[in-house]
Simulated assay, not measured.
Amino acid sequence: MANKKVEVGDEVLIRGRISRVNEDGTVSFWLPGYEYPITVLPGAFEQIIKTPRERKPRLSPRSGRRNKPSNERPANRGRPEEPEH
Score class of each variant (00 low, 15 high):
residue 1 M to E: 13
residue 1 M to Q: 13
residue 1 M to I: 13
residue 2 A to N: 12
residue 4 K to D: 15
residue 5 K to T: 13
residue 5 K to W: 06
residue 7 E to Y: 08
residue 7 E to T: 07
residue 8 V to H: 03
residue 10 D to C: 04
residue 10 D to W: 06
residue 11 E to C: 03
residue 11 E to Q: 10
residue 11 E to G: 02
residue 12 V to L: 14
residue 14 I to F: 08
residue 14 I to G: 07
residue 15 R to K: 12
residue 16 G to E: 04
residue 16 G to A: 07
residue 16 G to Y: 03
residue 16 G to V: 06
residue 17 R to G: 02
residue 18 I to P: 01
residue 20 R to T: 08
residue 20 R to N: 11
residue 21 V to T: 08
residue 22 N to R: 08
residue 22 N to D: 07
residue 23 E to T: 01
residue 23 E to C: 01
residue 24 D to C: 09
residue 26 T to E: 10
residue 26 T to G: 13
residue 26 T to C: 07
residue 27 V to H: 03
residue 27 V to R: 00
residue 29 F to L: 02
residue 30 W to I: 04
residue 31 L to K: 15
residue 32 P to W: 09
residue 32 P to E: 15
residue 32 P to F: 13
residue 36 Y to Q: 14
residue 37 P to F: 00
residue 37 P to S: 05
residue 37 P to T: 00
residue 39 T to A: 03
residue 39 T to D: 00
residue 40 V to M: 09
residue 41 L to W: 08
residue 42 P to T: 05
residue 43 G to C: 10
residue 43 G to H: 11
residue 44 A to D: 10
residue 44 A to P: 00
residue 45 F to M: 09
residue 47 Q to D: 11
residue 49 I to G: 06
residue 49 I to Q: 12
residue 49 I to D: 14
residue 50 K to Y: 14
residue 50 K to E: 15
residue 50 K to Q: 15
residue 53 R to H: 10
residue 54 E to C: 05
residue 54 E to R: 11
residue 55 R to D: 12
residue 55 R to C: 04
residue 55 R to A: 10
residue 56 K to R: 09
residue 57 P to V: 07
residue 57 P to F: 03
residue 57 P to H: 01
residue 61 P to R: 13
residue 62 R to P: 04
residue 63 S to T: 09
residue 63 S to N: 06
residue 64 G to R: 06
residue 64 G to A: 02
residue 64 G to F: 02
residue 65 R to V: 03
residue 65 R to C: 02
residue 65 R to G: 00
residue 66 R to M: 03
residue 67 N to G: 08
residue 68 K to G: 05
residue 68 K to D: 05
residue 69 P to R: 04
residue 70 S to A: 04
residue 71 N to A: 03
residue 72 E to D: 10
residue 72 E to H: 00
residue 77 R to K: 04
residue 78 G to P: 02
residue 79 R to V: 03
residue 80 P to R: 14
residue 80 P to F: 04
residue 82 E to S: 08
residue 83 P to T: 07
